[in-house]
Amino acid sequence: MGNKKGRSAICIALSAVLAIILLAFGPAAFAEDLLEKSERINDGCLRCHAAQGLNTKFEGETKPTSLYVDQEKYLASMHGTMPCTYCHTNISDYPHTNALTERKAFVAQVNSECRRCHQDITPIYNNSVHGQKNAKTGVQNAYCSDCHGIHNIYKKEVAEATINHNNVPHTCGNCHEEIFEQYDIDFHAKSVLLGGKDAASCVSCHGSHEILGPNEAASMVSPENTPKTCAKCHLFPLENFAKGDMHYKLAPTGDGAVSYWTLILFTWLLIGCIGFVLVCILIELRRKWINAGRPDSH
């Protein structure tokens, strides 16, 4: 019957339209659902965790650790549209029956979740000096969060980001304290720490996820590669760029010895010069005072 045929045609046409609509708007609808889901979950978490002063004591620790999450910062961060449970995978109920109570285990758990999405970084990181040390010692030497932060992860272009060009020295310096002190007296450091964008921060020369120690041939700061690394900014590679320690200590001996004695020399030059002219000013004023007191001066 023509009627039946016509109905099938209408059915097919309607299915096609429905399929097109679903294909076109389906993912968007799904994404909307994820965002809503994350808002719903995070609202629940933040009901407690947005309160300043919320804290806990990890096992074996006497000092409390804050559990406060700055809502504004988190929402603005790279992961602000994700549910808390994406990283805190073992939290699904209240009270948190599966919560890890030991600091190390807790930090390791959260950081192990990063690679679920960022699996492209994992092999690079594992080859780095940080990763190699992890494999050798069985101790995690640099977690993702040590450099990137926790609830405050931003793109490096954001001024507040821990990996922002001007914050990198402080971020690395959290562990590499001695090197930071030595970098700090360098001109590159002064420019970077005063807000400059042109001068080199730690990662400009050492790299980031792929970072290697100076003794490895592939390292950006190996003796062979150092001139090339400097030439990223300094026009052409020069052998002298690689000679001597880049980070030196101001001490009477060692690589910073000449700088140290120059500093001492000029400090005494300053004390001597200024001391001398201050004495001259005083004797001049004294003489003027005596002259002013004499009867013929009026």
């Binding site: 690589d255 910073g256 000449v258 004695w261 000029f266 300053l270």
Partner: peptide, 29 residues
């Protein structure tokens, strides 16, 4: 091309220390 790094480092200390001396000298003497 001509100087090693320690020389430039030491010269930089001389630069800023001499500058502090100059500023102090001018504004007192």
């Amino acid at each position: 091309q001509f100087f090693p790094k320690w020389f430039v480092d030491a010269y930089r200390w001389a630069h800023s220390d001499e500058a502090v001396l100059a500023v102090t000298f001018i504004f007192t003497w």
